[in-house]
């Protein structure tokens, strides 16, 4: 399964990619992505967190990790039983024209292409096109209608791509699961808002996808700012909350 998307995603896109890859990997699916920053990296990380096997299709020679920040990630991929693959000979530096070719290879290797976040003209849309040309399943994750980074995904959905709300949606399309999908009575528990849990009542007001700042939370709950920040920090110490950019996210309890 190829999981691809923007190199500069929103926190939402990154969270979705990570969680989706993790669940897919846990179900035994090999997650293919492009080792780029952003969604690609999140997909690889998620797959590794799901103790799964992940394959990075590179636009350079396999001996050159690009971007360099992902050298450690590449090592983890190998360590996790995955592979770095490339159609280019060793020593090939990153070149503009190579990455679209890499996207074709990715689509060719996968049974389905899932686009998590892609703005207009994003390289991830090329991978989706390649998937269509190669008769693979193409699916997309919806986002906010205000987000420029979801424009490409929404275009794909309008054109008939499969809707992805969770890993089961993907598994069903490739025939790996017989479960009923998109049950409107059961909101997807793993990508949406948290169910009430935890010691501090604050937790139930936090999302695990969309960060909320301490000031916003204080305003929402009519609490003092100082008190809210102290309580959030206590939750952070317990590991049930983490910071993301300017705000706080709930850390979903491990199952």
């Amino acid at each position: 399964m190829a999981v691809v998307g923007s190199r500069r995603p929103t926190p939402y896109g990154e969270a979705v990619a990570e969680r989706l890859a993790q669940d897919l990997a846990a179900a035994g699916v090999v997650v293919i992505s492009g080792l780029a920053l952003g969604i690609d990296g999140a997909a690889h990380r998620g797959a590794l967190a799901g103790a799964g096997c992940t394959v990075a299709v590179m636009g350079t020679g396999v001996d050159l990790v690009y971007p360099r920040q992902h050298a450690e990630l590449a090592a983890h991929i190998i360590g996790g039983g995955g592979a770095l693959v490339s159609e280019f000979p060793d020593g090939t530096p990153p070149r503009r024209g190579h990455f679209p070719k890499r996207n074709w290879t990715m689509a060719a290797l996968a049974d389905a292409v899932v686009v998590v976040e892609a703005g207009e003209g994003s390289g991830a849309l090329l991978t989706a096109e390649a998937g269509l040309a190669l008769s693979k399943e193409v699916m997309a994750v919806p986002g906010s209608v205000f987000s420029p980074l979801s424009v490409g995904c929404h275009q794909l959905l309008r054109d008939g791509a499969g809707l992805v709300q969770n890993a089961r949606d993907v598994l069903a399309v490739v025939g790996r699961s017989q479960e009923v999908l998109d049950d409107p009575l059961q909101p997807p528990s793993r990508l949406g808002l948290a169910s009430p849990a935890g010691r501090d009542g604050l937790l139930r007001h936090l999302s695990d996808v969309l960060p909320l700042t301490a000031a916003e939370l204080a305003h929402k709950l009519q609490l003092g700012f100082a008190e809210t920040l102290a309580r959030l920090t206590a939750l952070e110490l317990d590991g049930s909350v983490r910071r993301r950019g300017e705000g706080f996210l709930r850390v979903p309890p491990r199952e």
């Binding site: 301490a214 100082a226 920040l229 102290a230 309580r231 959030l232 920090t233 206590a234 110490l237 983490r242 910071r243 993301r244 950019g245």
Partner: peptide
């Protein structure tokens, strides 16, 4: 706890 909330190393 509040003081820790203002710390500098707020990277993810």
């Amino acid at each position: 706890l509040e003081a820790l909330g203002y710390r500098l190393d707020s990277a993810d």
